[in-house]
Amino acid sequence: MIWLDTLIQGLMLGGLYALFAAGLSLVFGIMRLVNLAHGDLIVLGAYLILGIGTATGLNPFLAAALALPPMFALGWLLQTALLNRVLGEDILPPLLVTFGLSVVIQNALLMGFSADSRKLPVGPVEAQSLPLGPVNLGVMPLVTFVSAVAVIFGLNQLFYRTALGRAFRATSDDPVTAQLMGIRPDRVFAVATSIALVVATIAALYLGARANFDPATGPARLLYAFEAVIIGGLGSLWGTLAGGLVIGLAQAFGAALNPEWQILAGHLAFVAVLLVRPRGLFPRAND
């Protein structure tokens, strides 16, 4: 029975990691950008939700909805003012710029909010659970998991069913030819990063509701998210969900054996998958 419980916990945790990773996966799939600041942007989103919540007295879910437009705008600004200038053949400049950004955001948050850990007050729903056969399922983890699946489904629909998605895929496959067809890659990239930050805000809501966070929380989450993206395979959103589940399950079972092994088990699963399949489980593109 304990194993069934662990299995379900792992799946729920994997949903959260898939949410962290979805925005990264989108951006990486479209412009091959490894955004090392993504984890810190999620934490920034969590502080924004907290700030809006305290200022207006709204429930974190409503505060998160209010936080979406400014995060969308931030994504646009980030891409047009900074990242578009360094994208190119050489992978070093975008890596180093996002690395610098990560340090700046982390320390700016530290100055603004101190190192005290915070939590988003979601109210009574936090403690509720549903009896599911022999085990109990927390309502918040379930909502997180359903949101993750919904976000991945939504992004996939956007990617394969809309004109914007066609532009995304065209720019990803061949930016030069896409330009000949009247697509402006820098605009497409800006929209992609904006959407990624909207997804990051949703991830921030569940991060803040599930556990304490502080300005230094970002990098560790970023690492799990990247592992999920890489396990899933380049450009595959459902693959990212699968990757998140692999990491979540490995961490849950590792923790069940020995609490100190939780994170280690996740990393080892990542290494094991890549030793067998270096390009991830479901790679869409070829590089």
Partner: peptide
């Protein structure tokens, strides 16, 4: 042997994960 299988930007993430494995392993 492990990280060289990952190209470009994946390499950076791979080395980072390895460093975390080393840290957690030594903690034991």
């Amino acid at each position: 042997f492990f990280t060289f299988r990952l190209n470009g930007a994946y390499f950076a993430i791979g080395t980072w994960a390895v460093a975390d494995i080393a840290r957690l392993g030594i903690s034991q």
